[in-house]
Write a protein that binds this DNA or RNA. Structure first.
Lengths: 237, 237
DNA sequence: TAGATTGTTAATCGATTAACAATC
DNA sequence: TAGATTGTTAATCGATTAACAATC
């Protein structure tokens, strides 16, 4: 039906790399969400999308979408919209998905195992290469296709296998030591679930702190606030 | 040493509730982090803190801290700073911590169990009252002190026990049905780990979507960007 | 061509920072 | 009192939205 989908839009209007402003942080923060929606559209077989269709889907303004996408390239085509596959690919590129980073998980507890079980990594082109723990009862066992290794091997392993990402799911008390060890072994980024803010000023490493508790608290606030203002407000009556 | 810590500052300058501007969303988003840092200070036995001390600790400007805290009350005292315990309590109050909400976890898979294992809920005054699954092999077993129940009971249970929060750790395919069921049974907020954005326009329920993958992607971006700009830039040389 | 939709500018809005008078 | 530190105003900065000419 939508035979215009077949028409390959002209996407070569930037033959030479133009000097562009750096992408603002607010835009970067939104990119993973765009990537997700575009991925879903792609899976659903949708070939093209306009900023106004996408805006309805995502609950943001069409203006913002056009503004955002234009920060890093003129990917649309007037009168046509955006090519879903192309745009999805461009955002992947910009975000560093499929750079082939290798990740290790340190801490084979509940959370470590839960993360090991997901397809989260491979879906983003990140290879889960090993899982570490210090519990002798676990070392040597297999978890989702990965042998559990001793943390004693961690440093050597990261160096040897050029590990880029360390997923930290160890107790607070051990977090600093392990994180520092990984940074020294060349790990570039630490995904920190240890429920504390890791600051490693002397190490050249990026830390992404996850605080699920903060999110739970935000939910409590929203529930409390909605309740306080009346669950069935009469503003619209 | 710090005997001035013992002096109870005067905190009764707002005897009557003054009309205040609503707290801006940017401030609300920052409150859980303040709460965390103040909690840590409290545990460390610190009684008072100035905006400039806290700013160094948290890596934000002192100006922002004072501005933020003033949105919802004059909690400090000139020449003294802020009383850690009092401020921590006020933020708890504002966020709805200790409102005594009850939570159920739906999905006793890896992630459901990992969340069940944490002290995240009780620490925020939320009671974990039950865990549900549809796997007959799990139903009846105990997980961290909670009996696994059948999802067939979910609706009745939520109604009967006045459950406020539903933690959703089921596969995507089941998420909508379960979420809608909970909303119909009076659940006020859904903490959604199903890796899709739950929109329930017909239900009067708040949804907090968790997308760990987005965070992993942000980490990839930061790694890629840092690398691209030279790991040891010479800007400072 | 006519219709659709982008890219981009300008206007608005909100959030952050700086500065300092108020005051403990 | 003198010193410290807040509360608050004003200035700056960045992010969002609206509008429309460019163009496919």
């Amino acid at each position: 039906m939508e035979h215009i989908d077949q028409v390959k839009p002209v996407f070569d209007r930037h033959p030479e790399e133009e000097p562009r402003m750096p992408v603002p942080p607010a835009v970067i923060r939104r990119l993973p969400r765009y990537h997700r929606f575009l991925g879903d559209l792609l899976k659903a077989g949708k070939m093209r999308i306009s900023s106004s269709q996408l805006s309805k889907l995502m609950g943001v303004t069409a203006s913002q979408i056009r503004q955002d996408l234009n920060c890093f390239g003129g990917f649309g085509q007037q009168g046509y919209g955006y090519n879903v596959r192309y745009l999805h690919g461009k955002i992947s590129e910009l975000l560093g998905v499929n750079e082939g980073y290798r990740a290790v998980i340190v801490g084979a507890g509940n959370l470590g195992r839960a993360l090991a079980a997901t397809h989260m990594f491979e879906r983003r082109g990140v290879a889960r290469v090993a899982i570490f723990d210090n519990n002798p009862a676990l070392i040597g066992k297999e978890i989702y296709g990965m042998k559990v290794r001793s943390v004693d091997e961690l440093s050597d392993f990261c160096r040897r296998e050029k590990v880029a990402i360390g997923v930290l799911t160890v107790p607070k008390a051990a977090a600093y030591e392990i994180a520092h060890m990984m940074a020294q072994a060349g790990v570039r980024g630490i995904w920190n679930f240890a429920n504390m803010e890791l600051a490693l000023p002397d190490d050249n490493v990026i830390v992404e702190n996850i605080h699920l508790g903060d999110s739970l608290m935000t939910l409590c606030y929203d529930i409390k606030t909605e309740t306080a203002e009346g669950r069935f407000g009469d503003e619209d009556l």
